[in-house]
């Protein structure tokens, strides 16, 4: 049996997640766009991004940023962590040459009416300490070593 890496009791409000730093390159941007089947030119065509979008370069697309946020959260929870919801707000773009930093904190924790333990995290994706995208993510965490949020279905899963 695979033991959960993180239990609900291990993540009280105020818990800070380890930072994730990543050097963004043109490959990061283009790979993210292709992996999310996003063929729009401002994610691979420098000239288009500059002349049509008025940005300084191509930039990370939203679905790719969602994948970065998911990776960040589940790096922390381990495989038993199950995302309930994510909300993003974009404040600025992330370009090749940027070092992006993801940082997050547990801001709420609880157990819902079905007995599912959950935490809410405020996560920011920043460049040079300026938040480019902010995210509120909620994840279900096991309440004990025998609990597994992924086994919840139908009325027992209320995200």
């Amino acid at each position: 049996m695979i033991t959960p890496r993180l239990l609900h009791a291990d993540a009280p409000v105020g818990t800070a997640l380890p930072e994730l730093r990543h050097q963004v390159t043109a490959t990061t941007v283009v790979l993210g766009a292709l992996a999310t089947r996003d063929w729009r030119p401002m994610h691979h065509d420098h000239e288009f991004a500059v002349t049509r979008n008025g940005t300084r370069d191509i930039f990370l697309n939203t679905p790719s940023q969602a994948a970065w946020f998911e990776r960040y959260v589940t790096d922390w929870t381990g495989p038993h962590g199950r995302l309930r919801r994510m909300r993003f707000r974009m404040h600025g773009s992330v370009f090749p040459g940027d070092t992006m930093v993801l940082a997050g904190t547990v801001v709420e924790a609880g157990v819902d009416t079905t007995g599912c333990g959950w935490v809410a995290l405020d996560v920011a994706l920043s460049v040079d300490r300026e938040a480019k995208t902010t995210c509120r993510a909620e994840a279900a965490l096991p309440l004990g070593p025998d609990d597994n949020p992924w086994e919840r279905t139908g009325d027992r899963w209320c995200p």
């Binding site: 695979i2 790979l31 992996a35 999310t36 790719s64 994948a67 998911e70 990776r71 790096d75 495989p79």
Partner: peptide
């Protein structure tokens, strides 16, 4: 491809034994 693009090593997506159990 998606996991590789963000270096997501969650074993749910790479290890069938973990996926089967979890």
């Amino acid at each position: 491809t998606s996991c590789a693009s963000v270096e997501n090593g969650n074993p749910l997506y790479w290890d069938d034994a973990v996926a089967d159990e979890v």
